[in-house]
Design a protein around this nucleic acid. Structure first.
Length: 371
DNA sequence: TCTGGGGTCCTAGGACCC
DNA sequence: TCTGGGGTCCTAGGACCC
């Protein structure tokens, strides 16, 4: 009888790989996608690093100035998100050849369900997929396979770079046993730290725990990861997530120099409101909630939001509402610590499709990339 | 070493209604 | 007269992912 497998395809050093396709002369060198820390934009971070760059201790999300210090000879390439989204579509289309129901999970990850007799058969299939992506799209990836979606994802991580890892149902607990708790998607630095304080470092140690302390640390998720550690994940971790409609759209701007003047902030919010409203118009969406969030100079955050009485469109109401919320935040801060603003975010939520204004076909643009 | 930009989901308290 | 408990919505904050 055939087993139903989830195959998780995860591209290796995705943004860098997209760039190396166009600039093969850089293959084998330490390459970083991100804004080089010279002049404006010096407050940036590393978006993606080649494995040659990782050998210098460079990682994604690392401050660019730190990366430059660790590897002065690295080649910096500014990001081109349009390109990465286009390549992502190419990959999804390519994967469609190997099975129905390809689920995009992010710009560089996808999963699909496949039926195969046993682990040897699914491994041969995965290697074939990997080879075709490498030969035809000239992109490296890693693939994990398991009857459980979350285990397939963890397996693809373990297989990096360029590997294939198959975990049959019966080997799940054994496979997870020695991995750190942080290998579970959804267990980040904070949760790892709290688990470590409770004497739990690996997923295997998680399996031996009573459920109560885990609930105290992680809420309902504590139950889920305990079941996972025991090799029998519940449906919330075992099943492939279904695609859902967008829930919010947002923009962020980090100032080159922190500011606290109303004029500076209002000017940026105005531009952001226009940009956000333009994007929503293209997607045919209206917004019914507005949130303004500040990151202060000390890196803490504060937000103010408001629900509108009806769904709206266009930049004006958004600019007006966001200016009001920003002023509230600034006023409060003037009476308090008086910190300056490092970054502003503008988000709209409760998105609704515009029904009564259908675009003529020649103005129709396909949905943007999965993220 | 000094930290981007775009998202999702969860929790918790207060208001309000029944 | 004083007191329930449950459900839903709104707001704020936090953790996490790529």
């Amino acid at each position: 009888m055939a087993t139903r497998w989830v195959a998780h395809i995860d591209m290796d050093a995705y943004y860098v790989s997209c760039e190396l396709r166009d600039r093969p002369e850089l293959v084998g060198r330490p390459v970083i996608v991100g804004h080089a820390p010279t002049g404006p934009g010096s407050r940036g971070v590393v978006l993606s690093a080649s494995y040659e760059a990782r050998a210098f201790g460079i990682r994604s999300a690392m401050p660019a100035v730190v990366a430059a210090r660790r590897c002065p000879k690295a080649v910096w390439i500014p990001p081109d998100f349009g390109k990465y989204a286009r390549v992502s579509h190419e990959i999804l289309e390519h994967l469609g050849r190997f099975g129905h129901g390809v689920v995009p999970l992010s710009i560089d990850e996808a999963a699909l369900e496949v039926e195969r007799e046993d682990s040897a058969a699914i491994e041969a299939w995965a290697r074939e997929v990997q080879r075709s992506i490498r030969d035809e799209l000239r992109l490296p990836c890693s693939i994990g396979a398991s009857p459980y979606a979350v285990v397939a994802k963890i397996a693809s991580d373990v297989a990096k770079p360029g590997g294939v890892r198959v975990v049959p149902a019966g080997s799940t607990a054994e496979f997870l046993n020695g991995l750190p708790v942080g290998a579970i998607p959804g267990v980040g630095p904070k949760s790892s730290e709290r688990l470590l304080a409770a004497g739990i470092r690996t997923i295997g140690e998680l399996a031996g725990q009573p459920v109560e302390p885990l609930r105290r640390i992680l809420g309902r998720f504590g139950d889920s990861i305990r079941e996972l550690a025991l090799g029998r994940p519940g449906p919330e971790l075992a099943a492939l997530p279904s695609r859902s409609s967008p829930k919010q759209r947002s923009l962020d701007r980090t100032f080159e120099h922190d500011t606290s003047t109303t004029e500076d902030i209002a000017r940026h919010l105005n531009e952001m409101a226009k940009q956000l409203a333009d994007g929503l118009a293209e997607e045919g969406l209206r917004y019914q909630s507005v949130v303004v969030r500040f990151r202060w100079s000390d890196f803490t955050q504060l937000q103010r939001g408001h629900q509108l009485p009806a769904a709206l469109e266009g930049p004006e109401p958004l600019a007006r509402e966001s200016a009001r919320l920003a002023e509230e935040l600034l006023e409060r801060e003037r009476r308090g610590l008086g910190r300056a603003v490092r970054r502003i975010s503008l988000a709209v939520g409760k998105l609704q499709t515009r029904r009564n204004r259908q675009l003529p076909l020649d103005q129709f643009s396909p949905a943007p990339a999965s993220r």
